[in-house]
Design a protein around this nucleic acid. Structure first.
Lengths: 339, 339
DNA sequence: TTGTATGCGTTATCAA
DNA sequence: TTGATAACGCATACAA
């Protein structure tokens, strides 16, 4: 049926092992036989079987991508396609293929990733998130599987290769920006506090307040899902306060969008009544009404560097642990005004 | 090193084949030995090796996803993450894994997909596009590889399982909507005319004009890339006309966004000066300023049904050819006004 | 109900 | 420089 190395061998009057060497372009094969074998391959339309090769090699040339929640849900946030773009670029350059985790619940995903790795379907994985006490990360470390995380690992960050932003500083920058605009009642809206991004940005927020001599008010710190709905919820909470904030630091564009929506429904105007600085600078920030002042964290680059690091790790098992910080910058648009 | 079926066999005092049968949950194995073997698997921490299984099986339980251009570029359009969401859902339900094509140029992608298939890395693929005279599709047909296309195949559509919208009707609906609003100078902006979506929607547009007794003006039909930049280009072209259109049928939200941008720069207002109906109803349509009236084509469902069909095809090779049409509907927002 | 033997398509070791 | 041959880990036809 399918043409194998053996067929080629026969056709070229050599041994299968010779054909294999030609495929690998081994220097120990004469140019002449190489020619002969290659000709035979063309004639027969030979294509190497990756599966068989993987089995013999113990390597697949495939990278696994692990999302924080079901691909189904995560992909709603433009952050993910954008990281994947970066990963894809690097993978392509090194001729790696990409495999995505599927799964609904966290336990589900854990299972599938374990299968992925133990089943030797992938040579390593990239975690597109970092959360506290992540079972999966512990598993990966314990079994010494090559992996890289995007974000800052919860514990022993110095033992895990990761690509991150300086999210504390970014949180500070966002907050200071509002402070410079004269805001004093500034709220912070983040995702689930299990995620390290949330924590870091929040810490930056708190630090900025404190440095400016502004009070840290617990009621001004809200955590919701990294989705539009999350933003809507958060906004409602904040608006129900006796003294609602005038400035918002929002850890994600999509959330900010939801907040915009709620504000609009209530009749409050941005930036006249409320100012917003958000994070990620995805297309949404540019397109929303008003366009959002947002912190660009170089999402594409996060993915690109992560994939590059992972491949290095795979090909050289004692590659040193690395920590790569992608620079961020605040992009000014129309969602902030003087107070 | 890694624990294999043999180790389990020894531990449980049975033959490797027995273990294999337990994994497959074969009914020809006694409950008693199943228990025994499973216990041994737990104790040893056994995980089946998918690669080995695939080799023996000639099947991988992996679906390949093929994008029209580099993942890098395609993923900029929210259409793709959204189809992938649908695919992911269906794949997960049937325990299939997902692999994405990478590659920059078309030839690149072709190569990689051929490798994917010939290398037996995937059991079948989903083409996330349909274009005229697609080399890849021909290859797939010739070699009888299981595949499904999202969109309408160029030739012999009755021989290819595909999931599509009624794009002609959708194009008509969009155009009629503008006509009903009193517009007479209506332009059509599509992507590359090699893509069948563009052609179908354009045909619907032309049909609607003709039925309404409005002239078809070639200068009102513009083709650009399915990106924001494409929209900007298109808008500039149309505005340079001696008699610019007052209504626009735009085949993609992202393009429409670009057009909005250009209009804004020039100082023309939507919908007061120009009305727009676009396609896809992605989040962008909802978020833009003004929000876009857009035709919802059920992107998620397109992906979901495609994956389901492909899996059926893989598991039952003489599954009949299918054609699935996902219904569309026009979602009214703020980008159209009476003329 | 279970075991033996062989094949899946490569790579790699060891000889020649 | 090349050829046999044994892995790689599992599935299955055939025996028992």
């Amino acid at each position: 049926m399918t043409v194998t190395i053996k067929d080629v061998a026969k056709r070229a009057n050599v041994a299968p092992s010779t054909v294999s060497r030609v495929i690998a372009d081994s220097p120990r094969i004469s140019e002449k036989t190489k020619q002969k074998v290659r000709a035979a391959m063309k004639e027969l339309g030979y294509h190497p079987n990756f599966i068989a090769r993987s089995l013999a090699n113990q390597a697949t040339q495939v990278i696994g991508i692990v999302m924080p929640s079901s691909a189904d849900q995560a992909l709603q946030n433009p952050f993910f396609p954008e990281v994947i773009r970066g990963i894809s670029k690097a993978a392509h350059e090194k001729r790696y293929a990409l495999q995505m985790s599927t799964g609904e619940k966290e336990s589900d995903i854990y299972e599938r990733v374990v299968e992925m790795l133990q089943g030797r379907r992938v040579d390593g994985v990239i975690l597109l998130y970092s959360r506290q006490n992540d079972k999966l990360m512990k598993y990966l470390q314990k079994h010494d599987f090559p992996f890289v995380v995007i974000g800052k690992p919860h514990q022993k960050a110095e033992q895990v290769t990761h690509v991150d932003n300086d999210n504390v500083q970014a949180g500070k920058d966002a907050t200071n920006y509002l402070i410079a605009y004269g805001h004093e009642r500034i709220a912070f809206v983040g995702g689930n506090p299990q995620y390290l991004v949330t924590v870091d940005r929040q810490n930056g927020y708190a630090a900025a307040l404190s440095e400016a001599g502004l009070p840290y008010r617990p009621e001004y710190v809200v955590h919701e899902e990294f989705l539009q709905e999350g933003g809507q919820e958060a906004m409602k909470e904040l608006l129900s306060l006796p003294e609602p904030p005038t400035g918002l630091v929002v850890a994600d564009d999509l959330m900010a969008l939801g907040m915009l929506k709620t504000l609009d429904e209530i009749g409050l105007r941005v930036p006249e009544d409320v100012s917003i600085v958000s994070f990620n600078n995805t297309l949404l920030a540019e397109m929303s009404r008003p366009p959002l002042t947002s912190i660009d964290i170089g999402i594409f680059q996060l993915g690109y560097e992560a994939a590059k690091s992972l491949i290095e790790k795979i090909t050289n098992l004692n590659e040193p642990i690395k920590r790569i910080i992608i620079p961020h910058r605040l992009v000014e648009r129309g969602s902030c005004a003087r107070r």
